[in-house]
């Protein structure tokens, strides 16, 4: 028998990381502040989750400036897209197998 949760991605265990990926799936480029606002998080909390996702190659970081203020934006990578879709498919499969 195949392990039913074998296809779930460990990195997406965190709701926050799953939320970040959901937003990046439908928006080309999202700034740190917009992510913070949409997910209702604090700076430190969001930053640590973002670096986990970056280390796994799921998102790209772009550092830029708006005037003098730094403006960091994030976008999803091909690998991130693939991982997220795989995770969703695994979730759906699990629901179906329970019915």
């Amino acid at each position: 028998m195949i392990n039913p949760i074998g296809n779930l991605n460990k990195i997406f265990d965190s709701r926050i990381r799953l939320g970040v990926m959901s937003i990046l799936m439908v928006n080309e480029e999202v700034s740190f502040n917009d992510l913070k606002q949409m997910l209702e998080l604090t700076d430190g909390n969001l930053a640590s989750h973002l670096s986990t996702l970056e280390e796994n190659g799921y998102l790209k970081v772009h550092k830029g400036f708006v005037g003098r203020k730094t403006n960091t934006t994030y976008s999803i990578t091909k690998a991130g897209e693939k991982a997220f879709k795989g995770h969703l498919a695994a979730l759906e499969n699990m629901i179906r197998s329970m019915e």
Partner: peptide, 22 residues
Amino acid sequence: TEQQNLETTLSDIKRIMERSSR
């Protein structure tokens, strides 16, 4: 239950995608 839990996760994902893009 485990199933309800998964279903809320999926609907949360849908909601966030919708809210962040519109």
